[in-house]
């Protein structure tokens, strides 16, 4: 079972990562590259949170004076694709386990339709919930301390997943317990005071604001595509594994 689930996650993740790379090429990557053009004028004060040896002397986009970074073009695309595939494998592994838990309890039959539903819920928990508090960001945007936002992101996503789970799976009034889990993190958003972008030039701010709005839509659509595809592919893989008897006989015995 372990082997089957890991291999299934790798297969689904590979497809998801390649699809995400295509979505990025169509939507988000051009916006990221355009925003980086305004980033050279960025004051360096908020770079402190990236590397211990970075004392804020770098002015370029990539943090840390001697830090390695892929060259723009083919090399950057390659590393982005590998990262997308890894992210796809990670999300697919968790989604497969969640779906299998639901299947074992008779709360889900692995079919395309239910896969789409689970994928949509994943989109709500992992993209929409954190984006309400911290909207998708382009390079050059100012924000609160990184560690604080990362912690908030993880807590928000986990509470949103638990909240949606309660709303959909609990019985009776207990469903309502999901609502505070969805709302609570939004009351503690690590917000950033001060100007939205590090670049003080008004023309740059205007351009960045427009890029930012486009990025919200582009990333929203890319992630919607990613999660719906993730839901369907995970459901199909799970169905195949179940049909072949690779998931044990737990549900048959219970």
């Amino acid at each position: 079972m372990f082997r089957s689930l890991i291999l299934g996650a790798c297969l689904v993740g590979l497809i998801l990562g390649l699809a995400m790379t295509a979505f990025e090429a169509l939507g988000t990557s051009p916006i990221i590259l355009a925003a980086e053009q305004y980033e050279t004028a960025e004051p360096v004060a908020h770079h402190h949170d990236h590397a211990d040896h970075d004392h804020g002397e770098s002015t370029g986009h990539h943090h840390g004076d001697n830090a390695w970074a892929p060259a723009d073009g083919a090399e950057r695309l390659f590393y982005t694709t590998v990262s997308n595939i890894c992210a796809g494998i990670g999300f697919a592994a968790i989604l497969l386990v969640l779906m299998n838990q639901l299947r074992e309890r008779g709360r889900m039959t692995p079919k395309v339709q239910q896969g789409l539903l689970l994928g949509a819920l994943g989109y709500l928990a992992v993209f929409i919930a954190p984006s309400i508090g911290l909207p998708p960001e382009i390079p050059g945007a100012s924000a609160a301390a990184l560690e604080l936002r990362q912690t908030w992101w993880i807590v928000t996503v986990m509470l949103a997943a638990a909240g949606l789970g309660l709303l959909f799976l609990a019985a009776g009034w207990k469903r309502l317990l999901g609502v505070p889990l969805l709302i609570a993190p939004q009351l503690f958003v690590p917000a950033h005071d001060g100007p939205m972008f590090a670049n003080p030039d008004p023309e740059a701010v205007l351009a960045l604001t427009e890029l930012h709005h486009r990025f919200i839509w582009a990333s929203g659509l890319a992630n919607l595509g990613f999660w719906l595809l993730a839901g369907v592919l995970c459901a199909l893989v799970l169905k195949r594994l179940a049909d072949k008897g690779r998931l044990g006989h737990v549900n048959a015995a219970d």
């Binding site: 990025e24 590397a51 970075d54 943090h63 997308n84 945007a141 924000a143 990362q150």
Partner: peptide, 24 residues
């Protein structure tokens, strides 16, 4: 999405932005 090393951040930079993992 979260490893703080510069090299990891730079390699996964565009992925982090698109998936809205907190970045920078």
């Amino acid at each position: 999405g979260f490893l703080p090393m510069s090299a990891a951040h730079n390699a996964a930079h565009d992925t982090r932005h698109t998936f809205v993992f907190p970045c920078h």
